[in-house]
């Protein structure tokens, strides 16, 4: 069981390392979307600090969507997805492994970039710490729920747009609690409640999403 999970992780990480271009595009997308806002709404520090948490969270959501379309599509294209589904290990583990890999490849870098953008948005150190914590809890949700959408839309015409339509409603709670936590600490009302709910949402996604995504994957391969 663990061998299978590790094999999936190792493979996806190696592939990401070999295709650094794809990987960089997603990170640049995150930076660029976040940087558009100061240009669009004006550079007043107070205003930027006010919208900062929300903007960074929305940008993180969109960046994760951008990479999700290819979560299963590449493997489907060259046939390795069928081989993995036909392996003697449960498909749930495959999905879990690929979600974790997706998080490590696309989620964790956001954690590293976000503080820099936070400074751009004049967030306080305290707010940046909470932003990091909220992204740490929240980005796995994006990868886990995203795997469901990617599995459902696998191989469909216009799958990318459809994926957005299906997954964004499911992302909304993560967005609300994540941005709310940072907002809370900046407003002086505390971030604990939001972070707790975000954590609960993460645990629930971890428990439910791989099963649904595995079922969806089998349906899409039929």
């Amino acid at each position: 069981m663990h061998r299978f999970l590790l094999a999936v992780l190792r493979r996806d990480l190696t592939l990401a390392a070999r295709r650094r271009g794809d990987w960089l595009i997603a990170q640049f997308f995150f930076v660029m979307v976040a940087s558009l806002f100061p240009l669009g709404v004006g550079p007043e520090p107070e205003m930027l600090a006010r919208i900062g948490p929300g903007v960074l969270w929305v940008a993180a959501t969109l960046a994760s969507l951008l990479s999700l379309t290819r979560l299963f599509a590449d493997d489907h294209h060259d046939g390795s997805l069928e081989h993995m589904v036909l392996s003697p290990e449960p498909t749930v583990l495959l999905v879990l492994g690929k979600s974790i890999a997706h998080w490590l490849i696309y989620g964790v870098p956001l954690l590293l970039i976000a503080p820099v953008l936070g400074i751009q948005f004049h967030l306080s150190w305290e707010a940046i710490m909470v932003l990091e914590l909220s992204l740490l809890l929240g980005t796995p949700i994006l990868s886990l729920l995203g795997s469901v959408g990617a599995a459902l839309t696998l191989g469909l015409r216009g799958g990318g747009v459809l994926l957005t339509l299906l997954i964004l409603p499911l992302y909304i709670p993560a967005l609300i609690f994540g941005a709310g936590a940072v907002d809370g600490v900046m407003a002086g009302t505390g971030a604990e409640a939001h972070l707790s709910l975000l954590g609960a949402f993460m645990v629930l996604s971890l428990m439910i999403a791989p099963w649904i995504a595995a079922a969806a994957l089998r349906v899409s391969l039929e």
């Binding site: 709310g180 009302t189 505390g190 604990e192 409640a193 939001h194 707790s196 709910l197 954590g199 609960a200 645990v203 629930l204 971890l206 428990m207």
Partner: peptide, 20 residues
């Protein structure tokens, strides 16, 4: 699964004790 449900429930209850 039980552990997951337990953790999630604890976190949700914790959230409702604080103000949201």
């Amino acid at each position: 699964a039980l552990a997951g449900i337990g953790i999630a429930a604890a976190l949700i209850l914790n959230a409702f004790q604080s103000n949201l």
